[in-house]
Design a binder for these strands. Structure first.
Length: 381
DNA sequence: TCTGGGGTCCTAGGACCC
DNA sequence: TCTGGGGTCCTAGGACCC
């Protein structure tokens, strides 16, 4: 989907069409409705929190504002841009509709998050281009939104192709296109090559996919290890035999929050305790709603200096209720994480539950989950 | 004025068992 | 007292993606 969250918002606020609009994270007030039916929108420059850009319209991107950028920095680049709070329920609803309508045309679909799918068209007899056009038209009819489609012999190339003519594009790649259209692209266009790997390749003098493709595998395996080295070489040569996976069992659920201000390990202990309990309660709700329980419980801390620490414990029995999650999470926080004289501040706190089983399968175990111990304080010092 | 939230996969070391 | 492989599970961190 093209600029998905922002595009959904434009359906609600068509008067913003053509303007730089940014959908952002936390603590943003929704637009105020005026008596005459118009809306009063917040501007990026009025924002004072710690959020980041979730999605920006193409007009905002033209000003240098992209996903992941802090809203503060975005405000410097585009102070007059409209700022909207994210409405995940609306995006999830739209997401379901676009996926459902595609499923009517081709049922083998791999979910790649809220705004992206892979579709296996192998078994469909239709000619490629009309098929892609039909999918786009169906998505537009169901949602009022445009998407970009890449068609190729595998997922790796289809993904790159889908990005070549955004927004509202169709790109069909044939084998001959590899050298002509893929090799001139930067290595970061390959799904799986991020900032770190790209910087590493840069040091080796490899910038474009074509250069990577012509680099001997041995050179790559020496630098990146056997597995990654081979993968890089294959990817650059357009090779990918990964299947379209229609369903995966979830591996973990988690909840985390970044505080409005950094919390002191000792002085803000009561607040940290309350936040931890709240996260466990939300995680328990998620597990309950989705019907899972897990036995590996972990916490995640980001300190004010952005240093990240995780701790996890595997319990003998699975759990899914808030009390037991909290008990286990507190356990993770005990030990050498904090000292008596600790003056550090924490910016983010998270709780995770992994090693999942379906709750109906775990029902027998559930009866014997350990009772939480009382009077235990989290964030021991 | 820095840097969200929810995920997956990989690696590497250590414990433990046979 | 010194020495094997092989396998699994657990834990911490990191890269990457949407």
């Amino acid at each position: 989907m093209d600029a998905f969250f922002a595009s959904v918002e434009l359906l609600s606020y068509p008067e913003l069409r053509g303007l730089p609009v940014v959908v952002g994270g936390a603590g943003i007030a929704p637009p105020r409705s005026l008596p005459d039916g118009r809306h009063e929108f917040a501007r990026l420059k009025s924002y004072g929190g710690r959020g980041v850009v979730t999605t920006s319209t193409y007009e905002a991107r033209a000003l240098g504002v992209f996903s992941g950028m802090s809203l503060m920095r975005s405000a410097q680049l585009a102070p007059e841009a409209i700022l909207l709070p994210a409405r995940f329920d609306a995006y999830r609803d739209t997401s379901r509709r676009f996926k459902a309508v595609v499923a009517q045309i081709a049922s083998t679909i791999e979910d790649r998050g809220i705004d992206e799918i892979y579709i296996d068209l192998t078994e469909l007899a239709d000619a490629t281009l009309p098929l892609a056009q039909r999918i786009k038209a169906a998505v537009f009819a169901a949602t009022g939104l445009t998407c970009s489609v890449g068609v190729a012999a595998n997922k790796l190339l289809a993904k790159i192709g889908s990005d070549l003519q955004k927004p509202d594009g169709i790109t069909v790649l044939s084998p001959e296109d590899l050298a002509v259209r893929i090799w001139p692209l930067h290595v970061k266009k390959i799904n799986g090559i991020g900032a770190k790997t790209a910087a590493h390749l840069e040091k080796l003098g490899i910038h474009h996919i074509g250069e990577l493709a012509k680099t001997p595998v041995d050179t790559l395996t020496q630098d990146f290890g056997p597995r990654a080295g081979v993968w890089l070489h294959r990817a650059a040569n357009g090779m990918d035999d990964s299947p379209v996976v229609t369903w995966r069992a979830p591996k973990s659920f988690s909840r985390e929050t970044t505080f409005e201000r950094d919390l002191h390990v000792r002085r803000d202990r009561a607040e940290l305790s309350a936040q931890l309990a709240a996260l466990c309660a939300r995680l328990a709700e998620d597990l309950e709603r989705k019907g899972y329980a897990g036995c590996t419980i972990g916490v995640k801390l980001r300190f004010a200096d952005f240093h990240l620490v995780t701790r996890e414990i595997t319990w003998p029995e699975v759990m899914s209720d808030a009390e037991n999650l909290l008990h286990a999470a507190r356990r993770c926080l005990k030990g050498k994480l904090f000292t008596e004289a600790d003056q550090r501040r924490i910016r983010l706190l998270g709780v995770r539950c992994g090693n999942l089983t379906r709750r109906d399968e775990a029902a027998a175990q559930a009866a014997s989950t350990p009772r939480p111990r009382q009077n235990e304080l989290p964030f021991p010092t």
